[in-house]
Amino acid sequence: MIYSFSNSGFRDPETGVYNQTYFMEVFNREWHRHMRERQTLALLYLCPHVHETVKQPHLLELFMKQVQEAILRTTDLVARLNQDNFALGLFNIDREGTEIVIARIEQKITDFNQDYQRKHNNRIDYELAACLCQPEDDLNIENLFEDVRSLTHTLEGQREHHTAMHCLN
């Protein structure tokens, strides 16, 4: 049997993206590297809403494949944090670059939804929140995760806005 990285322990079996444990290890390592090299990074949370009545087993996998295609850089990470949330780590990126990636993700989701609606008369709504920062000694990594989580929850109540970005420093 040939070993497959796509089926290994650091991948989410349903979507094929990295799992939370692997993401946290890499993000923590990158956080400290960015602190030393005085580079900025971004943490994004993506919360797609797939209704439980939808009976398409690979829908979330197909959806996340589109998101991965939008990122383009192999150094950036996409991971499943839990049943409903995904995290994206964008490394050595500035505000303009983060906005470009967000626009590409939104376009891929729009294209995906148009195709999906033609076939199933349904769409996947989502929230996408981003926090950009330059890691520093007095900035706690947990604060970054809390800020992006809080921004995501703020978006949940807003029908017309599904994307927001915040800079910590």
Rank of each mutant, 00 (worst) to 15 (best):
39 Q>N: 11
77 L>I: 02
12 D>R: 05
155 L>R: 09
5 F>R: 11
156 E>I: 11
43 L>W: 01
23 F>P: 04
124 I>K: 00
161 H>Q: 15
22 Y>E: 01
33 R>T: 06
80 R>P: 00
59 L>D: 09
169 N>M: 11
90 L>D: 03
105 I>M: 11
74 T>I: 06
137 D>I: 10
142 E>S: 14
167 C>Y: 11
165 M>P: 07
66 Q>T: 12
79 A>G: 05
9 G>N: 12
46 L>A: 05
54 V>H: 11
154 T>D: 15
23 F>E: 03
110 T>G: 05
68 Q>S: 13
46 L>K: 04
129 A>D: 08
69 E>N: 14
34 H>V: 00
11 R>C: 02
132 L>T: 05
84 D>G: 09
55 K>N: 15
109 I>E: 00
150 S>W: 04
169 N>I: 10
65 K>W: 00
25 E>R: 14
139 L>M: 04
137 D>C: 10
61 E>N: 12
65 K>F: 04
128 L>H: 02
50 V>E: 01
127 E>K: 05
56 Q>T: 15
109 I>S: 00
41 L>S: 07
62 L>C: 06
128 L>I: 05
78 V>Q: 05
161 H>W: 14
56 Q>H: 15
88 L>S: 02
160 E>T: 15
20 Q>N: 09
21 T>C: 08
58 H>N: 14
65 K>M: 10
44 L>H: 01
65 K>A: 14
130 A>Q: 02
150 S>A: 13
118 R>M: 04
116 Y>H: 03
137 D>W: 08
141 I>T: 02
112 F>R: 08
139 L>C: 08
153 H>C: 15
102 I>S: 03
63 F>Q: 01
5 F>C: 08
67 V>W: 04
7 N>Y: 06
133 C>F: 06
1 M>V: 14
47 C>P: 00
145 F>H: 10
6 S>R: 07
121 N>Q: 08
6 S>T: 09
71 I>D: 03
45 Y>R: 07
33 R>D: 07
93 I>S: 01
147 D>R: 13
154 T>Q: 15
30 E>R: 12
73 R>S: 14
52 E>P: 08
15 T>Q: 06
96 E>W: 10
18 Y>I: 02
125 D>V: 04
138 D>M: 11
155 L>P: 08
105 I>N: 09
22 Y>S: 01
28 N>K: 15
55 K>R: 15
129 A>S: 11
75 T>G: 13
37 E>F: 07
150 S>V: 10
30 E>A: 05
149 R>G: 11
78 V>E: 06
160 E>M: 15
76 D>T: 03
5 F>M: 12
93 I>H: 02
125 D>A: 03
107 Q>I: 08
31 W>C: 07
107 Q>C: 02
85 N>W: 01
125 D>T: 05
22 Y>H: 05
77 L>D: 03
158 Q>C: 14
142 E>F: 12
45 Y>P: 01
63 F>N: 02
68 Q>V: 08
41 L>C: 07
14 E>A: 09
30 E>C: 05
46 L>V: 10
13 P>D: 07
162 H>W: 14
1 M>C: 12
46 L>G: 00
122 N>K: 06
53 T>S: 15
156 E>T: 14
145 F>V: 09
12 D>F: 03
138 D>Q: 12
21 T>W: 09
19 N>R: 03
19 N>A: 07
57 P>I: 09
56 Q>L: 15
152 T>A: 15
16 G>Y: 02
142 E>W: 09
83 Q>T: 09
31 W>S: 12
15 T>C: 12
107 Q>N: 13
119 K>R: 13
33 R>A: 09
37 E>C: 04
